[in-house]
Computed example of a mutant assay.
Amino acid sequence: MDELLVAKVIVAVVMTVSGAVIIWAARATASGRLGRNEITGIRTASTLSSDEAWLAAHRAARSVTEAGGWSVVAAAVAVLATASPVQMVVVVGAGTTLLLVLVLVGARRGVRAATALPRPDRPA
């Protein structure tokens, strides 16, 4: 095995596992299987304020966050088709940039959904 092929396989595996974890987390938080915690999810003051806010935020963010996870999986497949280290870096960069954008859009949607809920400590 040449060095480029080994690097491509390692990068593809890491990206695939990362994408799968993001997809799982998006689904688990949106379904309520994964509640408020200190490790994963949209952790802001508004989303952590209640279980209802947590769930509303993650339901609002799910589709976009999942798309981010799938973008990394797709980039992992594309990495295997690259012919040079430069192409590999470009594909990895594009996939992770798309992931970042989609996760941030999802987080914004989630925070908006959480803050839109009526709270007993503020007037409606």
Score class of each variant (00 low, 15 high):
residue 3 E to S: 14
residue 3 E to I: 13
residue 5 L to D: 08
residue 5 L to N: 14
residue 8 K to T: 06
residue 12 A to W: 01
residue 12 A to F: 01
residue 14 V to T: 12
residue 15 M to L: 15
residue 16 T to L: 14
residue 17 V to H: 05
residue 19 G to P: 07
residue 21 V to Q: 10
residue 22 I to L: 15
residue 22 I to F: 11
residue 23 I to P: 05
residue 23 I to F: 10
residue 24 W to V: 13
residue 24 W to T: 11
residue 27 R to Q: 13
residue 28 A to P: 05
residue 31 S to E: 09
residue 35 G to L: 02
residue 39 I to C: 07
residue 40 T to A: 06
residue 40 T to G: 04
residue 41 G to H: 06
residue 42 I to W: 06
residue 44 T to Y: 01
residue 44 T to R: 02
residue 44 T to M: 08
residue 44 T to H: 03
residue 48 L to A: 01
residue 49 S to R: 11
residue 51 D to L: 06
residue 52 E to H: 03
residue 54 W to L: 08
residue 56 A to N: 04
residue 58 H to Y: 07
residue 58 H to T: 03
residue 58 H to N: 08
residue 61 A to N: 02
residue 64 V to Y: 01
residue 65 T to L: 02
residue 66 E to N: 00
residue 66 E to K: 09
residue 67 A to G: 11
residue 69 G to W: 06
residue 75 A to R: 08
residue 77 V to M: 07
residue 80 L to R: 05
residue 83 A to S: 15
residue 85 P to W: 10
residue 86 V to H: 04
residue 87 Q to V: 00
residue 87 Q to F: 01
residue 88 M to K: 04
residue 89 V to T: 11
residue 90 V to F: 13
residue 94 A to N: 05
residue 94 A to M: 11
residue 94 A to D: 00
residue 96 T to Q: 12
residue 96 T to V: 15
residue 102 L to Y: 04
residue 102 L to M: 12
residue 103 V to L: 14
residue 105 V to K: 08
residue 110 G to S: 03
residue 113 A to C: 10
residue 113 A to M: 08
residue 114 A to P: 03
residue 117 L to G: 12
residue 118 P to R: 09
residue 120 P to K: 11
residue 122 R to V: 14
residue 123 P to N: 08
